[in-house]
């Protein structure tokens, strides 16, 4: 069983909804990322999504675009990101790490070389925003062989056909994008999200995480009532941005913010447990 599958199985047994924070690797500098990852785990993160910076993040809103620009300003490369994961693994063998990004840096490294290097570094899953299953046959095969889970996005526009198609290749969990839009956009409609999750669950037997548009503890608590995982990105990255001049304060500040989200999610989980 993969580290991601094991983590979700354990959470399900404990009636706990996962909290998955997203941060961009190397933002604002390489030295901050690993301490930040440990602080997030200490504050209640169950899995971590680590963004691989890209020059043309077309699915991201301004907050995560700027994080990519900050990381690229000092040339954070894919191999540096893998190195950060290796450092994190030295002290944490249990928390799954999912790399999230765009295809071209992976293509540039070469699929086989990437699969091998990512597996050796301790990466558990990959989510490539612009690599739908139709276009990623070879990559899927190589990542599977390397024991890496393939996490895919599902969107409000995904019909049954697409949900099935993605269900056929996805492993670990699937990620439902709760709003039509880029990361950090708008507000999500909980009733819509709930209806879509029901449709997804009917067709895909994996845990379902919900992200895009979760900005505060209240929404996190509400989404926890329907999802297996609550994914929060821009709200965290925006707080990192405010502290770029004082990077030593970032792990503590983000830890505090996550603790608030965690408490709201726990409250939902407890209420559900009582029912």
């Amino acid at each position: 069983m993969s580290r991601i599958a094991a983590r979700f199985a354990d959470l399900a047994a404990r009636g706990r909804t996962a909290l998955i924070p997203f941060v961009t690797a190397g933002d604002p500098d390489l030295a901050t990322t690993v301490p930040l990852m440990h602080a997030m785990v200490a504050a209640g993160a169950d899995l971590i999504e680590l963004g691989v910076p890209f020059s043309d993040p077309m699915a991201d809103g301004p907050v995560i675009q700027r994080a990519s620009e900050r990381a690229l300003a000092h040339h954070t490369r894919l191999r540096d990101v893998l190195d950060l994961v290796r450092q994190f693994r030295a002290r944490d063998a249990a928390t799954p790490v999912i790399l999230m990004g765009y295809l071209n840096p992976v293509e540039s490294m070469g699929y086989a070389g990437f699969a091998e290097a990512a597996s050796a570094a301790g990466v558990d899953g990959i989510l490539l925003v612009d690599a739908p299953p139709e276009e990623s046959g070879e990559l899927v095969t190589l990542l599977r062989q390397a024991g890496i889970d393939l996490v895919y996005l599902l969107a409000p526009t995904s019909d049954e056909d697409r949900i099935r198609k993605i269900g056929a290749v996805a492993s670990g969990f699937v990620y439902y994008v709760a709003v039509k839009g880029v990361t950090g956009a708008g507000h999500l409609d909980l009733a819509d999200v709930n209806a879509k999750l029901t449709a997804i669950r009917r067709l895909i037997p994996l845990p379902v995480g919900v992200g895009f548009g979760i900005k505060d503890a209240e929404t996190a608590g509400q989404v926890a009532a329907m999802a297996d995982a609550v994914i929060v990105g821009s709200a965290i990255v925006g707080r990192i941005e405010a502290l770029t001049m004082k990077p030593e304060h970032i792990p503590g500040a983000i830890g505090d913010f996550l603790a608030g989200l965690r408490a709201a999610i726990d409250a939902t989980d407890r209420a559900r447990g009582l029912k």
Partner: peptide
């Protein structure tokens, strides 16, 4: 060529 886009755009 091909279709390398985020999921939201696949159906449109």
């Amino acid at each position: 060529g091909g279709l390398f886009v985020p999921e939201t755009l696949m159906r449109p």
